[in-house]
Design a binder for these strands. Structure first.
Length: 136
DNA sequence: GCCAACGTTGGC
DNA sequence: GCCAACGTTGGC
């Protein structure tokens, strides 16, 4: 099992939006590195949901409900893909970017290293650390 | 509002 | 194929 993180600007699509719809097609990704991660996602992989912009925090956990398929928004039939994710649960306490930065063991997270990447993998240990941080 | 990081475009 | 110009993302 692999672990992932997706970013969204809450103004355009928020965690609440996902909870309301339950399941969503995660499409429109137009970055090769992000696309390659989308292609590696497997059914039931956990996905951290991060709010960029004002929030700057991981707010919930989603789950992959459909593996990569051709992005329906891909007009030119390029090789872009989408997945489906479903909201699983809220984090008890959102894990802010500040908190993540304060945690030495998380300093290698792609979230910190590549601020512009919108879909990324998360190491198992890092995933677990974040869960721990979300408990207090 | 600014700026760093980074991706894309287009001229050469 | 290189690189300057420009656009976008996202943190500060």
């Amino acid at each position: 099992m692999n672990y992932w993180l997706v970013k969204s600007e809450p103004g355009s699509y928020s965690w609440d939006d996902l909870k309301q719809k339950n399941e969503e097609v995660w499409d429109g990704v137009r970055n090769y590195q992000a696309r390659n991660f989308l292609k590696e996602m497997k059914l039931k992989d956990p996905v951290l949901f991060y709010h960029s912009g004002k929030d700057k925090a991981i707010v919930g956990i989603a789950e992959v409900t459909q593996e990569a398929f051709p992005d329906p928004k891909d007009q030119d039939a390029k090789d872009w893909v989408a997945v489906k994710i479903r909201s699983e649960r809220d984090l008890k306490v959102p894990v802010t970017l500040d908190k993540i930065k304060q945690e030495d063991s998380l300093s290698e997270m792609l979230l910190l290293k590549q601020s512009r990447l919108s879909v990324m993998s998360v190491a198992k240990e890092d995933f677990e650390t974040i869960l721990k941080l979300s408990e207090s």
